[in-house]
Amino acid sequence: MKFRWVLLIMFMLFILEGTLAQWLIPLEWSGRIVPRFTFVFVLYAALYAGRHRALLLGILFGMLQDVVFYGHLIGVHAFTMGLCGYVTGLLLEHRRAPMLASLSVIGIVYLLLESLIYLIYRVFRLTADPYDWVLMQTIMPSFFVNLVFALAVYIPARRWFERIGSLRGAEEDES
């Protein structure tokens, strides 16, 4: 599994976030469920392919989202996704985490990411919603949706990123 194939798959997931996912979310829930499929992949990269890959992917796809859906600011997603991916990698890379452990890590880091994004918008006074309301209305429902997605792609994502990680490890051993 080459790194560029993973890039292509993540790009497709990014496209689906803005198009197909919008139609799958029921009307009553739209604007409350946030699909963050690329971020789930960034976290798998952090867990199985190393923190630098995660940082790169996080900044790359975060920036893509910021530029494509440029409304208020550029840089919110690039910064938060890069940071979350890097910190996760720093703490847990190459630990061979089992499924339950990696899913709980993804869940916790997801909450961290949403809170950071909320905080930035709040600091720039672009939202006035109270945090507890946002937590119950958008963060918790999206938390479960993204966790289900993480579970669904666990096996292929782990295989791809482990292969990329071991390739990189082998190169480092040689040099």
């Binding site: 976030e17 803005g18 198009t19 699909p35 963050r36 859906f69 997603h77 909320y118």
Partner: peptide, 14 residues
Amino acid sequence: VISASPDPYNRTIK
């Protein structure tokens, strides 16, 4: 319309 932003604080439409 070709896509809608998934971000709840920035719901732009393209």
